[in-house]
Write a protein that binds this DNA or RNA. Structure first.
Lengths: 183, 183
DNA sequence: GTCTATATACAGATAGAC
DNA sequence: GTCTATCTGTATATAGAC
């Protein structure tokens, strides 16, 4: 059995991916892990504290996935397809990327959480740009790595956002073909 | 002075673009137009009715913009840049596209509104694919029109979503360069 | 068409006992 | 660390007067 704090964090992460932090309450989290809402407040004093903790943990998880994909030493195309798969996978449960979801709620977030989101997207884009530079010999693209990185990161976020509405996969698949067309 | 119903619709549209329908209340709408919340309920019985009305009105507005861009008879590139500009413009006030925002809240929407969102995105993609086919002679792209259309529509939604977090324009600009690289 | 008043539910947060 | 109890604010929605 996990630490209670970690349990709350895990349940919160799942709920936010699905419905956003605005639709997650201390009460529902409490029920899900078998305590009362006051106990959730013991672990996360405010909603802002919860939001920040959840984003930081998620950022670490994704970064670890990307680092693993990088060390697997495939082609540049394989690595970018692995990047796409990281975000495609969240869609399997009708979820969004946690950071994409929270980006839509940014007006109700505090500065620390907003900064963590900014960093998350930049790190992911830096990872993509790094792969493109490392495999530039294989590349056959008209645009510089920084542009392709931004197109891929924001494009995949938009693709899962729109594909979820109709429970399809058309847009994420188009982005997979886009990646293949780069090489 | 507008019809009161139209006033409410306009205020609701602006508020939803910024914060989402989950953060818009009948009370705040009522205050903004100078009535009481019960009067808002007279025009829009439920929140679901309001959501649907707002999406349908927005879809009409955007469709009208695209039709105007189409009739202006420029190059294919000009038309796609006009398409990008439609979505870039909402970002000016730290807003999102109304349908992109509501896509993030789709789990709390009813079926009719969800269908209206699906239709909105498909119509926009059809418009882009139509432009690409019409100007295929100018085109220099590796991917078929349907893929490019989906990449552009979902990509622009993701670009404004992420750019708003850091109050920048980097991603939307990358998509503009992407459009130019297609011709 | 708009109002007052209200029903009902839920939110985040805290005090203080155990 | 968790509980009970509570404060305070807000939400959607409706009944019925004007």
């Amino acid at each position: 059995m996990q630490d209670k704090r970690e349990q709350i964090e895990a349940v919160a992460t799942a709920a936010i991916k699905r419905a956003g932090i605005g639709n997650v309450s201390f009460r529902t989290l409490a029920e899900a892990v078998g305590v009362k809402s006051a106990s959730v407040h013991y672990h996360f004093p405010t909603k802002a504290a919860l939001a920040l903790a959840v984003v930081e943990a998620y950022a670490q998880t994704i970064q670890a996935s990307l680092d693993r994909a990088d060390r697997k030493s495939g082609s540049g195309q394989d690595k970018l397809l692995a990047f796409a798969k990281v975000f495609e996978d969240v869609l399997a449960d009708e979820n969004l990327c946690l950071c994409g979801m929270m980006a839509s709620e940014v007006m109700s977030l505090d500065d620390a959480t907003r900064s963590a989101l900014t960093q998350f997207f930049r790190n992911a884009e830096d990872w993509v740009a790094g792969v493109l530079k490392q495999h530039s010999a294989e590349l056959n693209a008209a645009l510089p790595p920084a542009d392709i990185a931004r197109i891929l990161m924001s494009g995949l976020e938009g693709a899962i956002l729109l594909d979820r509405v109709e429970m399809g996969r058309a847009r994420i698949r188009s982005f997979r073909r886009f990646i293949k067309s780069l090489f």
